[in-house]
Design a protein around this nucleic acid. Structure first.
Length: 678
RNA sequence: GGUCCCGUAGCUCAGCUGGAUAGAGCAACUGACUUCUAAUCAGUAGGUCACAGGUUCGAAUCCUGUCGGGAUCACCA
């Protein structure tokens, strides 16, 4: 029954008469033990092997073993020789040298004072001196306080750059043979998608791309709440007030069309309720039911659901509709199918506009009965127990959770029962070892319970279940409520960012020479980059404030800023013929901006690993921004085509190409396309 | 009340398994386009990393407590 995507706040959905925002938008297409890529989990030895093969190392590039490993083993060797102490790689802290100091990597030597009774500075100097002959590419060092800054030779960076600058897929791992499923979006069929769905969809899509880049086969799915009383409300309203209207006849997107009837129902119900409140029956209910000091208004606000279920004529009709649906009444089922298909057509337009797609849709009308068999079986094996009233429970108190109901006393299933069955179904469908659920953090407890149950059931993929939990999206004015009409509609939002991007782009006239269709394509890429980057750059688990004004910003820490760095490279490359870049290896010395840039490029494979390990697309976004920032600075400070000499020119061209590849690939992991001009 | 998450510049956010003087963007103020795209760059200003203890050579980061904010503890989904 639906994942209940929380609302992001916002300005009310503006219905723009006759405007279909999606038109004109063409598109292309406890840290879980999930990715023990760098852990010791035996099952994943193969993955590990693949990674070490890809990230520069001894096998692929004899001289290019990952420099940190190289430094690590050098330090361990030297420490053993000088001080007779055996250290493990984990005992060493080695990180990129901060920009304000000279060097490439820094070893923290404070910890060594524990077994060497000398000043940190002296230890640093001893180590640095000893390392010089030991570590390939190590060219020099300096010691500041307890920090040993190691300076690599320019040759190291030039070799690395020469190795990767032409590699389109630098940073991506080959297939590892493992399969993951990502569930995201998971809407209800009675309302259009809103801002909350967009954050969800983008996280899901990005996780898919990141997992794929790390070598996994990924299946993208949704679970759609296509049944229940809410859907019946829309159906009933359409019957009563629709007069045979269709999305086509009204010129509306199907999901908005159906959503409008849902609202229509609610309006009619409210009128009915308000009228009823004037009756003597209502008076009686109020008098006998009111709490001490409760006002009439408060009472009836709280009484709404009871009224719906026990007094309302509309409520009665909606519930009858649900019963007929459950009984399989042909006419009801036909209407249900008709309305849902309108909704799906509408959703599809929004997915396309967002540039996302799914491999399979699971429908609750198919899955809401699943899981009962499993519960029956688990009852026999003692995992579940039945109370005298017939309800079935599981006791998870020893896992610091509570007792949880899995079957009602009438034998029907609840939300979690269905999720048990659906997980099993998905395993049968795809044989995945891991499943990632992109669902808002209000359901943290639900997934803790679900995953614990799956473990107790002994499901083979139980250890591979992960809840990618994300925080609510709120407006600057606070949380929003559908009742108050403050939900930010997905299509409106898309239309707004495109409008903003168009205005800015046309003003600049950078692409005025392109055919109009291509201009629109560029505008769309810029608009989506702004929106997507804005939503993904925040760590998923954090609640985020969505300021509509900032979300359409095109300058500063934004998607278009990153795109612009890429576009600058393309602009340079457009000006050259194919040219021999072998002179790059003679470029000497590398300046600080070049070193900074190339050092960042070097980190890309590791950043992808981190994003996978932490289920954190925001790590990619922040990395891309920093790389783009470094490139903008480099671009501003140093001439590429008019460099000092041929070697510098060749080197900077290689460097620019490498940066462009990484930016394009990195942004692709966020679902963001790069324009060639902007 | 129990459990979980969050608290970093006026605002929105980074800060990797503890390491150097806590960083960006926006907003404000100064500068830089006859030169590869200024959707850019450089600079100024802005901080008791909620608070208090603890561990450590070293804490925004780890531990405990307090205060604020949020979520959740349904025979709802």
């Amino acid at each position: 029954m639906g994942r209940k995507i929380p609302f992001g706040p916002l300005h009310s959905r503006k219905s723009l008469p006759g405007e279909n925002p999606a038109q004109g938008l063409t598109t292309e297409g406890n840290l879980p033990p999930l990715f023990p890529v760098f852990n010791q989990n035996k099952i994943f030895q193969k993955e590990k092997a693949l990674i070490s093969r890809y990230v520069p190392n001894r096998k692929t590039c004899p001289n290019m073993m990952h420099i940190i490993s190289l430094i690590q083993s050098g330090v361990m060797e030297v420490v053993k020789e000088l001080y007779g102490v055996s250290l493990a790689p984990d005992d060493l802290t080695i990180s990129p040298t901060r920009k304000e100091f000279t060097g490439d990597y820094t070893l923290v030597v404070f910890p060594f004072t524990r077994f060497v009774k000398k000043k940190p500075e002296d230890i640093g100097n001893e180590l640095g001196n000893a390392l010089l002959g030991k570590v390939a590419y190590l060219h020099g060092y300096n010691v500041i306080k307890g920090f040993l800054n190691l300076e690599l030779s320019d040759q190291f960076w030039k070799d690395f750059l020469g190795d990767i600058y032409a590699k389109e897929n630098f940073g991506f791992l080959p297939k590892n043979g493992h399969k993951v499923l990502v569930e995201s979006c998971s809407p209800n069929t009675n309302k259009p998608l809103h801002l909350g769905h967009i954050r969800n969809i983008l996280l899901g899509w990005s996780m898919y791309k990141i997992l794929e880049a790390a070598g996994y086969d990924v299946v993208r799915v949704q679970i759609i709440n296509d049944r229940g009383i809410a859907v019946c409300k829309s159906m009933l309203a359409w019957q009563k007030f629709g007069r045979g209207a269709t999305p086509a006849s009204e010129g509306l997107k199907g999901d908005h069309f159906v959503g409008d009837f849902y609202v229509r129902f609610d309006k009619a119900f409210k009128e009915e309720y308000s009228q009823w409140q004037g009756t003597s029956e209502a008076e009686q209910v109020f008098e006998s039911g009111k709490q001490n000091g409760q006002s009439r208004e408060e009472f009836f606000k709280a009484y709404k659901d009871i009224y719906f279920n026990e007094h309302s004529a509309l409520g009665r009709e909606a519930r009858d509709m649900l019963l007929r649906w459950e009984a399989g009444d042909p006419e009801t089922v036909a209407l249900w199918e008709q309305m849902n298909s309108w909704v799906y057509q509408g959703f599809e337009v929004t997915y396309k506009a967002l540039g996302v797609a799914f491999d399979k849709f699971y429908f609750e009308s198919d899955t809401y009965l699943l899981g009962k068999d499993t519960v029956e079986k688990g009852l026999q094996s003692g995992i579940f127990y039945r109370l005298d009233d017939g309800s079935v429970w599981i006791d998870l108190e020893d896992a610091k959770l509570d007792k949880k109901l899995v079957l009602r006393k009438d034998g029907t299933s609840v939300y979690i029962t269905q999720d048990i069955g659906t997980a099993q179904l998905r395993y049968r469908d795809f044989g995945v070892e891991k499943m990632v659920y992109v669902v808002a953090d209000e359901q943290n407890y639900h997934f803790q319970v679900l995953f614990e149950i799956m473990k107790r059931l002994g499901e083979p993929y139980a250890e591979g279940l992960f809840h990618l939990s994300y925080g609510m999206v709120e407006l600057p004015t606070g949380r929003m409520k559908s009742r108050e009409g403050t939900v930010v509609d997905a299509d409106d939002l898309l239309a707004e960012v495109v409008r903003e991007a168009r205005e800015n782009t046309l003003e600049r006239e950078n692409i005025a020479g392109l055919p109009e269709a291509e201009q629109e394509e560029v505008i769309r890429k810029i608009a989506l980059a702004a929106l997507k980057f804005f939503l993904i750059k925040v760590h998923p688990k954090k609640r985020m404030i969505f300021d509509p004004k900032e979300s359409v910003d095109l300058q500063g820490q934004t998607g278009p800023y990153v795109q612009n760095a890429y576009v600058r490279v393309q602009s340079v490359l457009r000006k050259i013929e194919s040219e021999d870049l072998s002179a790059a290896s003679a470029h000497e010395p590398l300046n600080a901006d070049e070193r900074d840039l190339i050092g960042q490029v070097y980190q890309f494979p590791g950043i992808i690993q981190e994003a996978v390990r932490e289920y954190d697309p925001s790590a990619i976004a922040n990395y891309c921004f920093n790389l783009a920032k470094a490139y903008h600075r480099f671009y501003h400070e140093h001439s590429i085509l008019r460099a000092e000499n041929e070697a510098a020119r060749a080197f900077r061209l290689q460097l620019s190409m490498a940066v462009a590849h990484v930016l394009r690939n990195g942004m692709d992991l966020l679902g963001i396309d790069m324009p060639e001009r902007m």
